[in-house]
């Protein structure tokens, strides 16, 4: 990891996340610098089928990253909501990278390495579909940022409805209503 950075004090991410919460954009970059590699490492292990339980749940990865950072004393449990908000964005980025790499590889003619035990579950259209979803989510966020955020938190961050609602600052029922419309719209954008 090239970005070894300065030594980390216990709870350092928590502090960065707090600063981010108070409007310090640079703190978010710093926090991402710590969280992204961690998340990436776990995601890679899953994507390479190093784990026996190889159906990847993005949200499960985020939780695992959280546990690891917390166990390492770099994150306080209190900071979990901000952490999941950040990790949701990063997880999305990782999956986008993943989908793009797979696509690029196909175009370049290099056959993807398909482990024997996962042949049956591989759907080649998945990368394209995911990139369509990613794009649609960006368009949605452009006109209605909050709905975009709720979807990201729920689907990529694994937050419960209550947690997501609290984070974006609306009631649970509002969040549920908004998620519902956003889901319907995204389903529509994905096509038949």
């Amino acid at each position: 990891m090239s970005e070894a950075g300065p030594p980390h004090a216990p709870g350092d991410i928590t502090v960065l996340l707090e600063r981010w919460g108070q409007g310090d954009a640079a703190a978010l970059d710093l926090a991402s610098g710590v969280v992204y590699p961690e998340l990436r490492k776990i995601a890679d292990a899953y994507l390479r089928r190093e784990r026996p339980d190889h159906t990847l749940q993005p949200t499960a990865l985020v939780h695992e990253a959280f546990m690891r950072l917390q166990a390492a004393g770099r994150l306080h449990f209190d900071g979990r909501r901000q952490f999941f908000a950040l990790a949701a964005q990063l997880m999305r980025r990782i999956l986008v990278d993943h989908a793009r790499t797979v696509k690029a590889q196909k175009r370049g003619g290099g056959a993807a390495k398909v482990p024997i035990d996962s042949v049956a579950v591989y759907d080649p259209r998945a990368a394209d579909e995911f990139l369509v979803l990613h794009d649609a989510l960006d368009r949605l966020a452009a006109v209605d940022p909050r709905k975009g955020r709720i979807i990201e938190l729920r689907y990529f961050g694994g937050l419960t409805l209550e947690e997501a609602a609290e984070l974006v600052g609306v009631s649970t029922s509002t969040a549920q209503r908004e998620q519902r419309l956003a889901e319907a719209w995204l389903s529509d954008a994905l096509g038949a």
Binding site: A112, V114, R180, L181
Partner: peptide
């Protein structure tokens, strides 16, 4: 159309996410 999709409760979005996760890692 949105009402039509609403009946699936976001299943389509979840399926796409599941699909990308199942993509094998590149060589």
């Amino acid at each position: 159309r949105l009402l039509e999709h609403d009946r699936t409760h976001g299943a389509r979005v979840a399926a796409v996410l599941d699909g990308v996760a199942r993509l094998p890692a590149p060589d």
